[in-house]
Every structure is written in structure tokens, then in C-alpha cells.
Write a protein that binds this DNA or RNA. Sequence first.
DNA 1: TCTTGAGTAGAGTCCACAAAAGTGA
DNA 2: GGTCACTTTTGTGGACTCTACTCAA
Length: 416
Amino acid sequence: MLKKENSGGFDGSSNNWSRVCDSCRSTACTVYCREDSTFLCAGCDSRMHAANLLASRHERVWVCEACGRAPAAFLCKADAASLCASCDAGIHSANPLARRHHRVPIMPILGTLYGPPAVETVGSGSMMIGGPTGESTEDYGFLCFTQNADDMTVDEEDEDEAASWLLLNPPVKKNNKNFDNDHNNQNNNYGMLFGREVVDDYLDLAEYGGVSQFNDQYSVNQQQQHYSVPQKSYRGDSVVPVQEGQGKSLILYHQQQQQQSHHLNFQLGMEYDNYNTRYGYPATMSHSITDFTFYGRITVSISSMDVSVVPESALSETSNSHPRPPKGNIDLFSGPPIQIPPQLTPMDREARVLRYREKKKNRKFEKTIRYASRKVYAETRPRIKGRFAKRTDVTEADQMLSTQLMADRIYGIVPS
DNA sequence: TCTTGAGTAGAGTCCACAAAAGTGA
DNA sequence: GGTCACTTTTGTGGACTCTACTCAA
């Protein structure tokens, strides 16, 4: 996409390193707070701007993706990148094609960086607002914060990554013209922001509740966002204590899941099940997670009923050895209602797409070893061209090889 | 602008066999 | 319900194949 360039930087320095967070001084900054005139990483931003309602209203903007040192001024839709004025000028004056990129002024980030406050949806359009136990939630206003900055950073990263899986790129076959045409035809419906980019199909989750519904909720939340529900986030396959508030909403989950998750089931089901099968996770596990939240934040819980279906060994194993679930194991099948973002601006959506792409780029699939003994044995097992071989075959092959070597020695041929 | 071939990356497949899981007496 | 013997299923890693993709000519 865009290479980091030495743009001179917001602070006038000339190196091409991303600016570090003014608060923690250890992490690359991601946002710039106009009110505080500070560059902050995601963790510090969340911490500082969730301290109180006033702070949460600070206008922030993403840091330029090209130089990483200046607040973004423009959003290039073609590159799907936030750029400062300097980088924007440099990049988009490079050639005539670049000049045609559609750029819009960057919109400030309000509220939370990693998603709006969770709001329970009730029925098809109404909303349930309140804390986990029904108390006033003024203190909970925005995100689920952990006790310290370190934890929060990890949480956000995990959740962000998990959220990324909700935004899977459907396969786009470049050579498939039919597909392309069809997709183009659908762009009127899906590609609101990114034109032909398929990722938008998944990002535009308001679609599931209807656009008008989204708008309604948006306006409602604009007024009532400080009453939003705090969400404790859980990751991994571990069994999750269901909070009181969540327990109530569980019924709603099941009522709504068929309406709201079937679409995703069809699109993502195969992929997740395949992953689970390949990496040793029971398929039932992938059907047991009953709570998630879209747009950059995932809340995962497992109903007790579903857990009982999973073999204990498998459950405990995955719980213990995988504090974080495999990426594909986040389940969308029996998912609860898709929670419509109360203040999902196009800029928010685009920002999430950016983060999604970055995460996707850096994603690593680590194979899960369920039985170390088998691994050890497999490593010591004889192979022929990578395949496991019978020990008798190997001995025969060894004999042939040794015979060949003997012959080579006899005739003075150097073995290659 | 389109075509073609080379190069690359990633996913899927295959194999044997110990260990785990299931079943019936 | 517990134990034993037997059968069936699962999981493991490296090499290879296949497909999709990129890039240059």
C-alpha cells in the first residue's frame, strides 16, 4: 500500500520512525488528540480518554499512516489510508493516477478508539441500555478497561484481532469475470465506502439491522451514549462467567441469532469449521460461543449448555494451552445479536478496515499441538519424501542406499 | 492494453503408527 | 460401577502437488 516515507515529521525531525506515544513512550502512536496536543498509542488513548465524559469528547484523529508522525489531515479512499497534509501532497502528486485518488478531510474520532460503547439490542430495533446489573453506567461509559495499561493493550490487541476475523475478505477471484461483474453489480448495495473492496460487505454490519435502523440507533446513541453497557471482554475458549446482564440478554441472543447470524453462517461457516477440524478443535466448540460484538471488539462467552457438548479433554486442553483461541475459532454461528454501533461514522469504519488489514497482514497461524507425545514421535518417525514410512520400508531403503554407496565407493564415484 | 511465461506463496494431501477414545464382555 | 481386552479413531510433521497470484517482457 503505502510505504513509510521520510516526510520530515510533525515535529520536524527527519528520521522515518513512527512517533512514539507521548504518554507511555514505548509504543508507536496511533492517534493525535487535538485538545491535549498529544500523540497517543491506542492503549493510552483509551485509558486517558475514558477517564471521564469530558475527556472522552476530545477530538482525536488518526496519525498519518505514511510518516507515522503527524496527525492525518486527509483520508485517501483509493489507498484506504489516512495521511497528513505533507504526505498527502507528496504521494498524490507522484503521478496522474495518484492525483485522481479521491480524498476527503479526515474526521475526528469521538468516544472510544476501539469501538463504541456496547449497547444491547432488544428485539429488532429497540435498545436496552444499562449496566451489567442494571445500575447506572456512567462510570462504564466507553470500553471495558482492564486494570492496567499493559493488560489493556493486550486485550485490545486480542479483541482487535478477533474482530478482524469478523471482517474476512471473501475470496475475490481476479480472473473470474463473472464474479467480478456480479460483484460490481452488488456494489451499489455493499460497497458504500470502498467501492469494489469486498471487505465492506462484512463491515457494513448495519445492513443486518437495516440502514434505517442503524440511523435510528445512531441518533439514539448520540444522545444516550454515556448510559452504554460496560462489556467485559473474554477471549479464548475458556468458559466464561456470564454476568447478570449478559444472562438476561442470552435469551435475546437465541431469539435473534437465527435472524441475524444466518447470513454470516453461510459465508463463514465453512471456513471456521475447516479450521477447527484441521487444528483439532471440536466443531461443537465453534458453535458454542454465544456472544460477540462487531466492529473492532469481540465479547465471547460460552453457554453452559454448549460447553457440555464439548469433550472435557478438548475443552480443557484448548483452554489451558490456548489462552487465545485460534483465529478461526471465533464463532459466528450461534452468535448473539449483532450490536449496531451507535456512532459508527464512515471514518470509524474506514479506520477499522485499516486496522483489520494491518492485522491480517501480520497474522500468524500457529499450529496447535494437542499431544506432545505424538509430536515427539512424529519427529522421530522415519520418512520417505516427507511421508511417514513403515520401518521395514526404511530399513530396506537404508540397505539399498548403503548398497548404492558401497557400489559408488567401489567405482570411485563421489556421492552427490 | 493484453498475453504469456516464470517465479512465488500458501493451502491441501499423503504417509505410518502410537495414543486416545469407544465398545462389549 | 469397575476392569479388562479389543477395535476404531485421532493426531502428528515433512515433502510434495496444486492453485492462485504477481510481475516483467
